[in-house]
C-alpha cells in the first residue's frame, strides 16, 4: 500500500502527531466541561437529558395556577443543567457533523497504519459508531427511558477508547517501529 505512515516523511508524521495531540487536548478539556456541567454517572446523564419531561403529565383541560411560598435559598439552589428537545436538536445539528469530521480524520490515520484489514475496518467502525451511540443514547434517554443514559456513556467511552487506540498505534508505528524497507 502506498499510504503507510511508518514510511511517511517526517513532516507527515509530525502532522499526524500534532493532529492527535490536538484531539487529545480537546478531549481532556471536554472531560473538564462534562464534570462542570453534568456528570459521569448514568443518573446525572439521565437528569441532564431526560429531565422532568419523562414524568410530564398531560396538559390540563383548563389552565391551572398553583402558588407556593419560596425562600431566597430556593432561588440559590443549584439547577440541574437540563438539555430539552430544542437544545438537543441544536446540539445534534452542531456536534454530529463535527464528530463525523473527527472520525474521518482518525480513520485516515487508521488507513495509514499497518493493520490487518479486519482490525482496520473494526477501528473505523468504532470511530463512527461511538458518536452514533452517544447521540442515540441522548435521544433514547429523552424519549424512551432514563435508563438509556448508559448508551450515551458507552458511546463516550467508545469514542475515548477509539481515540486512545488510534493515537497509541499511530505514535508507536510512526516513531517507535523500525521503518519498512
Amino acid at each position: 500500500m502506498l499510504y503507510d505512515l511508518r514510511r511517511a516523511d517526517a513532516s507527515i508524521k509530525w502532522l499526524v502527531t500534532c493532529l492527535l495531540a490536538t484531539f487529545g487536548l480537546s478531549y481532556l478539556f471536554g472531560a473538564v466541561m462534562v464534570s462542570l456541567y453534568a456528570g459521569f454517572t448514568p443518573q446525572r446523564v439521565a437528569a441532564t437529558y431526560a429531565g422532568p419531561a419523562m414524568s410530564m403529565p398531560m396538559p390540563p383541560d383548563s389552565t391551572m395556577i398553583v402558588e407556593h411560598p419560596m425562600s431566597m435559598a430556593d432561588f440559590a439552589r443549584p439547577e440541574t443543567h437540563a438539555v430539552d428537545t430544542n437544545l438537543l436538536i441544536q446540539d445534534t445539528h452542531v456536534h454530529v457533523p463535527m464528530y463525523g469530521v473527527i472520525a474521518a480524520a482518525l480513520s485516515l490515520v487508521v488507513v495509514g497504519l499497518s493493520l490487518e484489514r479486519a482490525w482496520a475496518l473494526g477501528l473505523i467502525t468504532l470511530l463512527f459508531a461511538a458518536p452514533w451511540l452517544d447521540f442515540a443514547g441522548m435521544w433514547l434517554t429523552k424519549f424512551v427511558s432514563p435508563q438509556c443514559a448508559i448508551v450515551t456513556l458507552i458511546g463516550g467511552w467508545a469514542m475515548g477508547a477509539g481515540y486512545a487506540i488510534v493515537a497509541a498505534l499511530a505514535v508507536k508505528q510512526m516513531w517507535f517501529s523500525p521503518e519498512r524497507s
Binding site: 471536554g30 472531560a31 459521569f40 446523564v45 452517544d134 447521540f135 450515551t152
Partner: peptide, 13 residues
C-alpha cells in the same frame, strides 16, 4: 475521565 468527554455535549452556560 477523558474518554468520557465525548459522552455529553453541553453548551457551556
Amino acid at each position: 475521565l477523558a474518554p468520557l468527554a465525548a459522552a455529553l455535549h453541553i453548551t457551556p452556560v
